[in-house]
Design a protein around this nucleic acid. Structure first.
Lengths: 203, 203, 203, 203
DNA sequence: CATGAATGAGAATTCATTCAT
DNA sequence: GATGAATGAATTCTCATTCAT
């Protein structure tokens, strides 16, 4: 293994350890000590790879967020098209949260502990959606909205996602979580489908 | 002023100082020292009124949350009825957040720093909505939903609120905030109005 | 009840509360708050009766010590005479400790937390013993010892008492405590009886 | 000096500083600040070596106790045998206390501030004595006692030691201390020698 | 006298970060 | 690059004592 590879491995260990600790205990108690211990390196080593603790925190959300996004898009691509794809995305998000409980924490605590990264993450997601919406509008699959309204719509859509995730998070048992997921998907379909379709059928 | 009144005043000073500090810097850096200093009392005095720091944190959300809720309901009561009232609520919430920027922080950081209080707050709001929904359904003003689906709907509605607030929070200038507010209200009207007003069942 | 009587009642409440708290939790955590609460008075009232916390601590040992001493002497007086009386005293002390577990604490922690009172208590006990010894020597019931040696003997006797009490204190069950007590009395009889009753001088 | 050696040195500094502070002012006012300052390290360094303050306290008695025990046994081994050795032990203990005034404090306050360590120390000493007694009994050098009585005897012997040490501790001047020591040894010889020898001469 | 709120000087403890090895 | 001991600022919390009511 070259010097460079070894460095990458160490860096990834720290990043993964960071995720694991934040997932388990939250940013607030994700100390360098815990992260370095879990990564199997000395405390000082941490600072060879990251400026400071905040620097790691700022990388956590992109690191995890992209993994989630890829997973979701992979699934969404399986859907026939348009609106169905959005519904698939919504469901895939909830599934992802159920299966990666810790990710929920990495994500929602980021607003507080890594606000810059969170803002970037939001912009990222929102911009992705803007493209999707533009295409749908161009192809006449939905109402035409001006840019501001499109952005508002996206934020509201993301809010629905996030709060359905919270609702699932509050549920105690696995079976309950799944039931909520199904009902939330149904509700989402109903709210979005009815309104955005401008009179046409869901496709 | 009687001794009891003075005690109440001191307690309120601490509570208000707590709100102010959290609003300005977040829970994480709301130290006893800052709160007590702002309240104009000695550090030790804090502990005459609150078991510990967490105890204050746990009161912040109810304290501020009820104030907001009352303000919103007061405004909503002005609306003719039903759906219009809900739109008024949504708008009032956004206005409240714009006018009380700090409240946004007290509210959304609570999920992390005062999880019990946050959960209680959510249950509170959700239950309030359940009643509203039941009445609307009983009076045939909206689709009949089973309890689980109603709850999902409520969470999604609250998510829309919250993320529209976040969108506003991200905006830099006051004028921009107002523009987003108006567009968000429009979007909300569109999403909710179209779907819930329809006479058909959910599929 | 006259003003003076009421004052005495309050003072006694505080003293008793002090004993109770020290007995239960030790001097170190016997705070004014706990003592005043248990006595049923306000914190400030404490300072109408005692200079400060130490002043109460300094009264605890005399207060409890005299009670014990009286009880022991009462029992010892029942013994025929001389040496038997001393054995009775020893046994009575152990019984007192068994029956008043808390007293053990008030007594032995006093050396640290109320050193002056402890010293006075020791002097008191030692002087009492000096008289007893002098009488025994005058009546030819025991060796004649010079004053220093008499004092040494007394301290050693008190040490035997104290450490037998500690041994009992270490025992977990009541039955075990009683068995230790009996064996300790036997041992004491053996050590003291054999040596002090002999007609020869110490060399 | 290797890193490991330096660490040991630091740890020992803290331990010695702990002893010194406790010896001078007692456990109650042996704050981390004082200990760390005396050891010449930062406060935080303390916690690199000890879990908390109690952890240091719990090591003080073993640390000092073993030193004393070794010193005493070393001296006792110089005595011809049996009973003489025990008298030498007693005298050596008193000398140790006279020469290491602080140790007395570390030892007797431990019952309160490091009860576990104190209990362990007592068990240790008591068990050591049990072996000594068993040998003496096996070799016919003293009365045969059943185990419980042997234990009682040991506690009483230790009590004599401890209270003779207290008596010395109370004395103001060095000369007085030495006089008490001599008289206490004489008294001890008398009490123990006479009774335990089962009719035979002291050997 | 009684009250109990206010005080503020400490105490223990944590932990991000540095730096000599 | 890796190490991990040292640092010290910052934080929470306690409690004896005071004093205005």
């Amino acid at each position: 293994m070259t010097r460079e590879e070894k460095a990458r491995v160490t860096r990834d260990s720290l990043l993964n350890a960071g995720c694991a600790v934040v997932a388990a205990e939250g940013y607030a108690s994700a100390s360098i000590a815990k992260i370095a211990d879990l990564a199997g390196v000395a405390h000082g080593t941490f600072y060879n790879y990251f400026e400071d603790r905040q620097a790691l925190f700022d990388e956590l959300l992109p690191y995890e967020g992209l993994r989630m996004r890829d997973r979701i898009e992979e699934i969404a691509r399986g859907a026939p098209s348009g609106m169905q794809r959005e519904f698939a995305r919504f469901e895939a998000f909830l599934n992802y949260v159920i299966e990666n409980e810790g990710f929920y924490r990495v994500l929602y605590e980021a607003e507080i502990f890594a606000p810059d990264a969170h803002r970037a993450h939001m912009d990222n997601i929102v911009n992705g959606y803007k493209g999707t919406l533009r295409r749908a509008m161009d192809e006449g699959r939905m109402h035409r909205l001006d840019p501001l309204q499109a952005e508002c719509l996206i934020y509201q859509i993301l809010g629905m996602r996030a709060y359905s995730a919270m609702q699932i998070h509050f549920a105690g048992e696995a079976a309950e979580k799944l039931a909520i997921r199904d009902a939330a998907v149904e509700t989402y379909r109903f709210l979005i489908g009815r309104s955005l379709l401008s009179g046409k059928d869901i496709r």
